[in-house]
Amino acid sequence: MTLLSSAPRRSREFDKLRRGHFAPLLVSALIAATALTLIAWLLWPTWAPKAFDNNERLPVSIGETLFNIPPHAFRRKVQRHSGPQESVDLNFVYPSLATPGAPMRVTAETVEQTPLPVDRIFLSIAAHHDTLAPDVRLRTIYPRYLDETRSEPQDGLSIHAFRDRTPYAGEDLFIAETPALVARCTRDAATPGMCLSERRIGGADLTFRFPRQWLADWREVAGAMERLTQQLRGPQN
């Protein structure tokens, strides 16, 4: 009987001992959880994606030349920041030169029926690293590959065809003096022809791209490129 009566007593003493050890562990766990919650709250990032204003400009240095670029003009999000960059790719609505709105959504089912809008002038700005300047290329490189047949200027715009089996085969060179315009354009084929026009500003080369059909009003195109250049450069001291 003594052995049997002592067993419940030892069980009660063991339970008391176990509860005595469990309470400090529980308190320690609660303290640790509270500390972790506080640390997580302090370290959790509080920033949110910045909503750019339509009138805001990002100062971007390309080839040590400063440009002030509207944030919504960037074609690549990774380039949408201020500071030095090797190159940027931009686009603007033509002829207003406003920054584009939301891109048009095209699905696999509607891609054949949805015409692409021809209302963008594309601009790439890149550090030139002392490569051949556009005006030097016009004087020394292009003449080697032009067809000797000369065409009469049309509304002040002269057209020169590049010969076949040359680096510029299938392209034409458009030149005007007032306002100044030099554009190298592919010819219309399965896809509409496209033009590129280059100019050098400081340590950067600006390359404009636009549809060849716009040259029907070439003075407006030349003026738009000049205005856009001035807007991006801003007031110069």
Rank of each mutant, 00 (worst) to 15 (best):
T2R: 13
A7E: 03
P8A: 07
P8W: 11
R9N: 02
R9D: 07
R10M: 09
E13Y: 09
E13G: 01
F14Y: 07
K16N: 10
L17A: 14
R18D: 12
R18T: 12
L26N: 01
V27I: 14
L30E: 07
A32C: 04
T34W: 00
T37N: 09
T37F: 15
I39V: 14
I39W: 07
W41A: 11
L43E: 10
W44Y: 11
P45W: 06
T46K: 13
A48L: 05
D53E: 06
D53G: 10
N55Q: 13
E56D: 11
R57D: 02
V60M: 10
I62V: 09
I62P: 07
T65A: 08
T65W: 04
L66N: 14
N68R: 13
I69C: 07
P70T: 11
P70D: 13
P71H: 05
F74K: 08
R75T: 11
K77W: 07
V78P: 06
V78D: 15
Q79D: 15
Q79T: 05
Q85E: 12
Q85L: 08
S87E: 15
D89A: 11
L90Q: 12
N91H: 13
F92Y: 04
V93R: 10
L97Y: 06
A102P: 07
P103I: 03
M104F: 03
R105N: 08
E109L: 15
E112I: 11
Q113Y: 01
P115I: 04
I121A: 00
F122N: 03
I125W: 02
D130Y: 11
T131I: 03
T131L: 11
A133M: 02
V136M: 00
V136W: 06
R137Y: 04
R139V: 12
L146I: 15
D147M: 11
Q154V: 09
Q154E: 14
Q154F: 07
Q154T: 03
L157M: 04
S158Y: 02
R163N: 10
D164F: 10
L173T: 07
F174I: 00
I175N: 10
A176H: 06
A176F: 03
E177N: 09
E177W: 08
A180F: 15
L181I: 05
L181A: 10
L181F: 04
A183S: 09
A183H: 05
R184W: 08
D188G: 06
A190T: 10
P192M: 10
G193L: 01
M194Y: 07
M194W: 14
C195F: 10
C195H: 06
L196V: 15
L196P: 00
E198K: 06
R200E: 03
G202P: 05
G202M: 06
A204L: 07
L215H: 03
L215A: 01
D217T: 12
D217A: 13
G223N: 13
A224L: 02
L228Q: 09
T229M: 06
Q230E: 15
Q230M: 10
L232T: 00
L232Y: 06
L232D: 08
R233E: 09
G234N: 12
N237C: 00
